[in-house]
Amino acid sequence: MPSEPILRCEKLSKRFGGVHALENVDLVLHRGEVLALAGDNGAGKSTLIKIISGVHPPDDGALFYKGEKLRLRNPRHAREIGIETIYQDLALADNLDVGANVFLGREPTKSFLGLQRLDRARMRAVAHEVLDTLDIDIARHKFVQPVRNLSGGQRQAVAIGRAIYWKAELLIMDEPTAALGVPEQRKVKELILRLKAQNVAVLFISHNLVDIFDVADRILVLRRGIKAGERRPSETDHNEVVRLMIGG
């Protein structure tokens, strides 16, 4: 029995104008656990991850991170304490290479005649290393090309690799397999399982029930801002999850 959950949310609520986007939602997530967020459009999935990643403050309720109450100031604050979010648009600069993306905003430099010069060799070497530990296969020559020349799955891997390198302990992923081909989807799911093995907590949104059943330890279903239910894949099936999502 894992002792302290890495993240606990208590009765989170968020209103936009008169609309209840989220109402009294509880959530618990442990290290090395994969939690899937399921729900129809407008169910509140995005609102929930935006609260956890520091984009919106909740109107009511509280977050506990590693046992302590947490008030997030902004996304940067969340990242600094180990909560990393990978959005659908990947948050990569498409015109830069893999190393530059892994280090974006935190580049290593070498002193050169008193000037601070980018250490591209190190950036490239570390990028290799990180992607190797995740067992991601990218051809050597691709490392010096802009990431726009990589496949969708490879770019997803770069984004995840960056999160891991910067010591993410809780990784939030928004539709990580959308817009990918079947083999690529499989690679990303392998990656999630590898992260789990490395004791990272993963929270991901998906529309794809097959993906959810493949990798999630638990499934949290939202419906119109309310928690409709929580199941383990071994104790439920697609039909029940769909029923929870659409009600009735």
Binding site: D89, N95, L96, A100, L104, G105, E107, L115
Partner: peptide, 21 residues
């Protein structure tokens, strides 16, 4: 060669990514 230059490219490539980084 500098971080400044790198950020210039990043902002042009994906402004949101640059902000989030």
């Amino acid at each position: 060669q500098s971080k400044f230059g790198q950020y210039t490219y990043a902002i042009g490539g994906n402004r949101i990514a640059a902000v989030r980084s």
